[in-house]
């Protein structure tokens, strides 16, 4: 899926995954698959409510069907299919279907903007044995931010000094972006996502 994202983008199509698991579970799962940068949405509260509204929630096992829905930019359902929970989706075929919707749709769309990026001097400071640092690093992996410099202040005195100079304190995780310190893991994660994989 991740490899074909450019094809969906070219068809002005936003890819969204949906499951009933939690946001934290999603981030870990996504990394185990080699990193997922498109949004994985938690259909969590109440469990499966969105899947139910699309008629793809399987009440007996209490899971969501492996279903696929294409919605055009006018908000109309253009395709719905299931390969059953045990099945495998044909992503190539879905890309072709989205390209067909893009060709045939009379409704308005906008092209995807280039991602803003982080700049070459961005540094993420993390520390060891810290759940907030781990969450920030998960996002780095899911966003394929391989160019971002990550420094661990727990075992690098020079990095700790740099962090103090940039932010005025020793609190990690901290993202330093064009000279500005961005503290707090949830803010760091959102900032990375908005700059590397914007959705609107």
């Amino acid at each position: 899926m991740e490899a074909l994202l450019p094809r969906f983008r070219a068809a002005h199509t936003q890819v969204l995954g949906v499951s009933v698991d939690s946001v934290y579970s999603h981030a870990n799962w996504a990394r185990s698959l080699g990193g997922i940068s498109f949004p994985l949405l938690s259909d969590f509260e109440p469990k499966g409510a969105v899947a139910r509204s699309y008629g793809v929630y399987l009440e007996k096992p209490g899971i969501t069907d492996r279903a696929t829905v294409i919605i055009d930019s006018g908000g109309t359902v253009r395709h719905g299919s299931s390969v059953t929970p045990a099945g495998k989706r044909d992503i190539e075929e879905l890309a072709a279907l989205c390209e067909q919707v893009a060709r045939e749709s009379g409704s308005r769309t906008l092209a995807f903007a280039e991602a803003e990026g982080l700049g070459s001097d961005a540094v993420l400071y993390v520390k060891s044995h810290c759940g907030f640092s781990r969450a920030a690093q998960l996002a780095v992996d899911n966003l394929h931010a391989t160019g971002l410099t990550v420094k661990n202040v727990s075992d690098d005195a020079r990095a700790l000094e740099e962090l103090r100079a940039a932010s005025g304190n020793e609190t990690a995780p901290c993202l330093v972006l064009r000279g500005t310190a961005v503290p707090e893991s949830p803010v760091i994660v959102r900032t990375l996502a908005d700059r590397l994989a914007p959705v609107t």
């Binding site: 899926m1 969906f8 068809a11 002005h12 199509t13 936003q14 890819v15 969204l16 995954g17 949906v18 499951s19 009933v20 698991d21 579970s25 999603h26 799962w29 899947a51 699309y54 793809v56 899971i63 969501t64 069907d65 492996r66 279903a67 696929t68 829905v69 294409i70 919605i71 055009d72 930019s73 006018g74 908000g75 253009r78 929970p85 989706r89 879905l94 989205c98 919707v101 893009a102 749709s105 409704s107 308005r108 769309t109 906008l110 995807f112 959705v199 609107t200």
Partner: peptide, 16 residues
């Protein structure tokens, strides 16, 4: 968010 901007491909997953 995507109205009049993008088509949307929704992939439902049974479980993570």
């Amino acid at each position: 968010d995507f109205r009049d901007r993008r088509h949307v491909l929704l992939l439902f997953y049974p479980l993570d």
